[in-house]
Design a protein around this nucleic acid. Structure first.
Lengths: 243, 243
DNA sequence: ACTATTGATTGATAAATATCAATCTTAGGA
DNA sequence: TCCTAAGATTGATATTTATCAATCAATAGT
């Protein structure tokens, strides 16, 4: 691992409050690696060997069943993922693959568990992280069960805008078919939903979204922090993690 | 709290490994209460005051948005719920109400947080609990996104049977409209799905389910531990908890 | 600049699911 | 026991969403 990466890791909520010796131990053991785009890092069903920390790039979490698959989330720097599988010592429920060239630090799960036991500050941070991960999936479930696809898209756009300081213009961070899958719809359906939103406060051209009437968009989205999450701002890493 | 309740609590995964003084402290502070049926214990959006432990009865977790609502889960003895909101010190994402007369032990969230910090065994147990809660919602999301409603029903029946030692005959633990909401469909849709399953290995009469052909049912359900969860058996409390 | 390829969009259609209204059943209370 | 009310079921219909097929647009590689 390059020495200039350590401060970035140290700033993560998961690592921020732990004791320095514990942190240094983990940094000693862990190693950094760069992966090409579209590489499968983790396959669902396998056992958790490493806690992953994404330093650069982006990683998509997917789930598969019976020939169908769906996007469960996207992880961006700097954050950790699959803490839960490490803590529980159980198989991964999701697969993970790079969307682009990505740099990732891998820390053996066994060493993470030892550190958790030794360092209570680390343990508290891990608890908060797991709690947040849990809550974020509760929200995702609420989103799927309570909103229809148009409402989910509207809420997504509003939320993305919120993250970027209420910017009225922003760029989709992923391909539309991935977004569609994440939102629980087909690409065709997303296309039509986008079209419907024209004239309801949003225009979309390619990857470029422009909010022309926030109130009308909000009327459809019905934004709710108990579904959409707290409005965490982006640009000041580290962000939230995926447990 | 009655003294004969303490051993039951002590057997919970969350409390099993903690130090005795910590446990006794929490038991000293917490208090037991009996609630009538259909009482709202927790309202979504409020802040987490107490960690709840259900000793007797059953509690339904629901979520509401914009006039719609849905059943997110049912908690049965002996288990804890809303650990995540306690740990994160954030508002509840779900409401909770008793389905029947229920006895519940309530432990102030602030005291739980103090105990977590003091007792690393407790902290480890809490991490596992949160991790399991997280994973169970990941599975729920996969279920909703990857299976259609008939498949979800089939998987549910198979899973319930699994929990009861692969019994080929069992009773629905909740009213059908609640089950429908939990599975993400309307009561009408559930009725029709049940009818469809007749002739595919299942008969349902009232609350009574009989599996006549497990293989045919499994062919529809496509049971998968990465969605349906590990086959934990019932009847030997404590069961799994809802974080 | 020009293909070739991949992703996006559109239209037509089908399937899944929800809604509404009308019974039917069942369990509890008088 | 009967009556009532709540839940379940059924049928008819509407809405939502998915699927399939055919372009269209954008992009990367030569």
């Amino acid at each position: 691992m390059r020495p200039d990466e350590k401060p970035n890791l140290r700033r993560l909520p998961l690592f921020r409050e732990m004791m320095t010796p514990t942190f240094d131990d983990l940094m000693q053991i862990g190693y950094s690696q760069v992966f090409p785009p579209h590489l499968e890092l983790i396959r669902q069903g396998e056992y958790a060997d490493f806690l992953h920390v994404i330093i650069e790039g982006s990683v998509e979490l997917r789930a598969t069943w019976n020939g169908r698959d769906t996007v469960m989330g996207v992880v961006r720097p700097v954050s950790t993922f699959i803490l839960a599988a490490c803590v529980c010592d159980e198989p991964y429920l999701m697969s993970a693959r790079t969307l682009e060239r990505s740099q990732i630090v891998m820390i053996p799960a066994a060493d993470v568990r030892v550190a958790l036991r030794r360092d209570s500050d680390f343990a508290m941070a891990a608890m908060r992280e797991l709690g947040e991960g849990y809550r974020s999936f509760v929200r995702h479930t609420k989103n799927l069960k309570l909103r229809d696809s148009l409402e989910r898209l509207a809420a997504y756009i509003l939320y993305e805008s919120n993250k970027h300081d209420d910017a009225s213009s922003l760029t989709l961070p992923v391909e539309k078919r991935h977004l569609a899958s994440y939102l629980g719809m087909t690409p065709e359906n997303l296309s039509r939903a986008i079209k419907t939103l024209h004239g309801h406060g949003v225009t979309v051209q390619g990857m470029q979204i422009t909010i022309t009437d926030r109130a009308r968009l909000a009327a459809i989205a019905g934004p709710d922090p108990l579904i959409d999450g707290p409005g965490e701002k982006v640009g000041v890493p580290p962000q939230r993690s995926v447990s």
